[in-house]
């Protein structure tokens, strides 16, 4: 299949060489090399290679069904649960292949946190939500847990809003607060990477704005990969942008360049709203 694609469509072989980022001596946190993804017979990702810069924000944009969420979920192996999922190629985190059989998936997910499209707090108190990731690691030190909970909530700019009422039911919070709670929950286990799958698509503009501000803050400490439908959002928050279309990586590079002077016509058409 792979060789066929190459011989029939010489265009894709251009993508095979990794798109160069004009990185200013930044190191790459995540590296995807020639990744194919299949769900049974359907090919969701076709030969994508790209590097993600440490402590930066990388946005994946593209129309629905282009494979951007699938691609994002490769980084913490959330696709493993889907029946018929098959991947070729490799994904390196700090140089180590995360699909190697020696990798402990649970450990990987402590390093690579994730925030989902719809806020999905557990039906518990705010405190227990944030503490969950620590508790399942077997941490019993309640003082440490409480410190992490408060710290994470402050980091996610939620602590002041709930006035330190940690016993509040998570589901009683507003949608935007719930999403920031989910971010705090992900931060509590001290990941180095944060994956965000359309984190603001279920929220109103004001809540979305707060999340965007938060993402900007978090960049200082974390490597963030964000999938978004909202192109203004990608332009506002990200350092680098990847445009995916029909499972292929069309263009990847500096966000400003992608949005002002893209190399490919298809990218141009998409960001100007002519299709997708």
């Amino acid at each position: 299949m792979d060789s066929q694609t190459k011989s029939n469509q010489p265009k894709t072989s251009q993508v095979k060489t990794k798109p160069k980022l004009n990185s200013k001596n930044q190191s790459f946190k995540l590296q995807a090399n020639n990744v194919d993804v299949f769900y049974d017979d359907f090919q969701a990702i076709e030969n994508i290679s790209l590097d993600i810069v440490e402590q930066s924000i990388t946005a994946f944009i593209g129309p629905s069904g282009c494979g951007k969420s699938t691609f994002l979920r490769l980084f913490n192996r959330m696709n493993d649960y889907i029946d018929g999922f098959l991947m070729n190629g490799s994904i390196l985190l700090d140089g180590n292949d995360i699909y190697d059989s020696s990798i402990n998936v649970e450990e990987l997910r402590k390093t690579v946190g994730m925030v989902f499209q719809k806020p999905n707090p557990f039906p518990k108190s705010v405190y227990e939500n944030v503490a969950y990731g620590l508790r399942i690691q077997g941490i019993k030190d309640e003082e440490y847990i409480e410190n992490r909970v408060v710290e994470s909530l402050k980091q996610a700019t939620l602590y002041n809003e709930i006035e330190g009422n940690l016993e509040k039911q998570a589901l009683a919070l507003s949608g935007g607060q719930q999403q920031r709670l989910c971010i705090a929950r992900a931060l509590a286990v001290k990941p180095s990477i944060l994956l965000m799958d359309e984190p603001t698509s279920a929220l109103d503009p004001i809540s979305s704005g707060k999340i965007e501000d938060l993402i900007h803050e978090l960049k200082k400490e974390f490597t963030i990969v964000i999938v978004t439908h909202n192109m203004q959002q990608a332009a506002r928050v990200s350092d680098n942008t990847a445009f995916l279309y029909m499972g292929k990586l069309i263009e990847y590079g500096d966000t400003q360049k992608i949005f002002t002077n893209p190399e490919k016509d298809r990218t141009q058409n998409y960001i100007t709203g002519r299709f997708g």
Binding site: N76, M78, Y81, E106, E107, L108, R109, K110, G113, M114, F116, K118, N120, P121, F122, Y132, G133, I136, Q137, C182, R185, A186, V189
Partner: peptide, 22 residues
């Protein structure tokens, strides 16, 4: 809802932990 399962798994919970706690 599968979103609860996703949340638990994404935090590094094992299968049994997700079943038992969520």
């Amino acid at each position: 809802p599968s979103s609860i399962r996703d949340a638990s798994n994404a935090l590094g919970a094992s299968k049994w932990q997700t079943i038992w706690h969520q």
